[in-house]
Structures are given as C-alpha cells and as structure tokens.
Amino acid sequence: MHLCIDMQRLFAEKTEWQVPWLPKVLPAVFEIASRHTADTVFTRFAPPTTPEATSGAWRNFYERWPQMTGEAIDPGLLDLVEPLARLVPPARLIDKPANSAFSRPGLAAALRRRGITTLVVTGGETDVCVLATVMQAIDLGFRVVLPTDALCSTSDGAHDTVVDLFGARFSSQVEATTTGELLRRW
C-alpha cells in the first residue's frame, strides 16, 4: 500500500507551513500514485477549528499557530495538490488530526483486513508527519519502504538526519530506496 502523507495546498502554497521543496518531489510522488492508484491512500492534515478545540500539547501548538486553524484558513488549502487530487478516487483520502497517519482511528485495522504488510511512505514532512507515521508503522509491525526522492521537508539537515536514522537504526524494518527502484520492483 502506498501511504502518501499530507501533499496538500496548505504545505505547497505560501502559508506559514509552506514546504518549499514539495513541488520538487511531486513528480516522484505522482509517478508512484498514478501507477498504483487503487493501492494509494492520501492523508490530509486537518487542523482543528480553534486552539480550544484541542487539548494538551496540541492546544499549545495551535495557540502558537492560530492563523493555521480551521476558522482562519481557506478550506481549499486542505485539498491535495494537483495532479494528486485527480487520483481520488480510486485512490482513497483520509483526514488525520495529528502527525501520524495512524492518528486516524481504524487505519491500521483497515490495512490488516486487506492483508497489507508493507507500506510505501511518501510525502512530507520527512522529520514530522512522515517520521511519526513510520515510527508508528514499525510499532504496528508493518515493513516500510521509503523512496527518499519522494519525501520532502523544510529542513535539508533534518530530512537527511531522519533518512540516516532509518538506515542506521531501523534497517530491518525500513528500506530506503528511490522511486525508480521501487517502481521496478513493485
């Protein structure tokens, strides 16, 4: 299953959370998703309406970023970027309230019901939502394949560190590769 993390206008356009190299990895992400559309799940990071709609550290987070809450942003910013948006359906789209794709209740169980044991993870940000998703996927027993040319971050250093971490500490559970090599083997 291809799990594409948060390739949304919210992160592609000029917002407080813009990921400048999202457009650079978009062709690789699209290549994977377009070849395996029925086996692709896109996630969307869905901010709460207000900081008060959350609790704990998330409330603190949104008190720091009130301009990025549901009541303050253009709802269209939550949409997937083009051309990914055109792949839904048959690709599926799920909203998530936190960093990990598995913060969406029922995702792991739905993948298991389909017999999925390996996840190809793409999208952004490598050092935030992708990291959270991969770590939780490992804990849930999934094997993870990361085409590193289909991942993006606002920080080159953090991206490189996380990719290196997966190779050095999680090589039994995470395989770093390229989009070309992934597509040859899938």
Rank of each mutant, 00 (worst) to 15 (best):
H2K: 15
C4Y: 01
C4F: 04
C4Q: 06
D6A: 06
Q18L: 09
V19W: 05
P20D: 14
W21I: 11
L22E: 08
P23H: 09
P23Q: 07
K24R: 13
V25C: 07
L26C: 11
A28N: 15
A28C: 14
V29T: 03
F30K: 04
F30V: 10
F30W: 13
E31I: 08
I32C: 10
A33M: 06
A33W: 04
A33E: 07
S34P: 08
A38G: 15
T40M: 01
V41Q: 00
V41I: 13
V41G: 00
V41H: 00
F42V: 01
F42M: 02
F42E: 00
F45W: 13
F45L: 07
P47N: 12
P47C: 15
P47I: 10
P48T: 09
T49C: 07
T49D: 09
T50E: 08
T50F: 10
P51T: 06
P51G: 06
T54N: 10
S55K: 11
G56H: 09
G56E: 09
R59Y: 06
Y62A: 03
Y62D: 01
W65D: 02
P66N: 06
Q67G: 13
Q67W: 06
M68Q: 04
G70Y: 02
G70M: 04
E71Y: 03
I73Q: 01
I73N: 01
L78Y: 01
L78F: 01
D79C: 05
P83Y: 09
L84F: 01
L84I: 04
P90N: 11
A91Y: 08
R92E: 12
R92K: 11
L93E: 05
D95R: 09
P97H: 11
N99Q: 14
N99G: 13
S100L: 09
S100P: 08
R104P: 01
R104D: 00
R104W: 04
A108R: 09
A108Q: 08
L111Q: 00
L111S: 02
V120M: 14
V121W: 00
T122Q: 04
T122D: 04
G123H: 03
G124C: 15
T126H: 05
D127C: 06
V128T: 15
V128I: 15
L131K: 14
L131A: 07
L131V: 03
A132P: 03
T133C: 06
T133S: 14
T133Q: 03
A137D: 00
I138S: 02
D139H: 08
D139W: 07
G141Y: 03
G141Q: 03
R143D: 08
V144C: 07
V144L: 09
V145H: 12
V145D: 10
L146A: 08
L146T: 07
L146H: 08
P147M: 13
A150D: 05
A150Y: 05
L151T: 11
C152Q: 15
T154L: 10
T154A: 12
T154E: 14
S155Y: 10
D156W: 14
A158M: 15
H159W: 07
D160Q: 09
T161H: 14
V163C: 14
V163H: 08
D164Y: 12
L165Q: 12
F166A: 05
G167L: 05
G167K: 14
A168H: 07
R169H: 11
F170R: 05
S171D: 15
V174Y: 00
V174P: 00
V174A: 02
E175L: 13
A176Y: 09
T179I: 05
E181Y: 08
L182V: 12
R184A: 14
